[in-house]
Computed example of a mutant assay.
Amino acid sequence: MSILLMIILVSFAGGVLSVLCAAFFALNAKAAWVPMLISYAIGALLGAVFLEILPHAFEVASSIQSMSATVLLGILLFFVLEKLVLWRHCHGDACEVHASPHEHHGGHSHGIHDHGRSGLMIMIGDTFHNFVDGVLIAAAFMVDIRLGIVTAVAIIAHEIPQEVGDFLILLHSGYTKKQALVFNLVSSMATLIGGVIAYFALQSIQSWIPTILGLAAASMIYVAVADLIPGLHKRTELRATLQQAVLIGLGIGSIWLTGVLLHAG
């Protein structure tokens, strides 16, 4: 199977899978599971970065210093983009943009009118974010097929809780279930478009691949540390903390196991 075909299949399947899984949780009142999904996603993101992406990035980079600088600048870049509402990684009740599932289901969210105005911006932000995910997946596949698969797994893991939040906002902004599903599916296709464009662009600009891998690592670190982990601190009881730690460990373990199985294959 060619690299391009694998990028197309993974990007398409990953986008559709994450939206359908999110729809299941959001439309079947499973929003209470979102915190568990977030904990798992943190582990998957950090596992992919430190066990797979960064080791490969350092191998193909011109120097360790240049790659470290790329990751650092990438983290600052995503901070600025998020401030400009171009890069949006809010999940569940982890930020002000997304009211908590409890607030949504109880119908007492004070920001429903704001959510209605921000519905279109949410879709624009998600489309941009999904396009970038496609670029990152393509760059990873062009370095190593195993790295591409692991990167895709981590991206799908963190997309699911994000999409759940999007569904809840759209539903409580007046959209029907069908409209919310269609909008999210259309937005997810940006992953496929980004992957295909990146594949052909990187064919002639191979020197960009290390930089994109560094940005991929930076984006995943930023999402996990700046966006997701703070939300977990809202639950301070020992049971919740242990549950979060176990699920983060499972996320890391799943990435490690995926890498081991792909090596063995």
Score class of each variant (00 low, 15 high):
residue 188 S to R: 04
residue 223 V to D: 02
residue 240 A to D: 13
residue 213 L to F: 11
residue 181 L to Y: 04
residue 245 A to Y: 00
residue 54 L to E: 05
residue 83 K to M: 09
residue 171 L to R: 13
residue 226 A to R: 10
residue 69 A to L: 10
residue 166 D to N: 15
residue 80 V to K: 03
residue 107 G to A: 05
residue 150 V to S: 15
residue 159 E to W: 04
residue 233 H to Q: 11
residue 265 G to V: 14
residue 60 V to F: 15
residue 263 H to A: 05
residue 97 V to D: 14
residue 73 L to A: 13
residue 83 K to S: 12
residue 2 S to E: 07
residue 251 G to C: 08
residue 264 A to W: 11
residue 69 A to P: 04
residue 82 E to R: 14
residue 87 W to T: 01
residue 136 L to F: 14
residue 152 A to G: 14
residue 40 Y to M: 04
residue 243 Q to K: 07
residue 234 K to N: 10
residue 24 F to K: 07
residue 83 K to L: 08
residue 91 H to Y: 08
residue 88 R to C: 09
residue 245 A to D: 01
residue 54 L to C: 07
residue 101 P to Y: 14
residue 246 V to W: 08
residue 225 V to S: 01
residue 185 L to K: 05
residue 169 I to L: 15
residue 19 V to W: 02
residue 164 V to S: 13
residue 122 I to F: 08
residue 130 N to Y: 01
residue 75 I to V: 14
residue 248 I to V: 13
residue 64 I to M: 06
residue 68 S to C: 03
residue 105 H to F: 12
residue 238 L to V: 05
residue 251 G to S: 04
residue 240 A to G: 11
residue 143 V to P: 00
residue 93 D to E: 15
residue 188 S to I: 07
residue 225 V to E: 03
residue 55 P to I: 14
residue 233 H to N: 10
residue 85 V to K: 09
residue 137 I to M: 06
residue 251 G to L: 01
residue 46 L to P: 04
residue 185 L to H: 03
residue 155 I to C: 00
residue 225 V to R: 00
residue 123 M to S: 09
residue 52 E to G: 09
residue 73 L to Y: 12
residue 142 M to T: 05
residue 157 A to N: 09
residue 140 A to P: 04
residue 128 F to I: 13
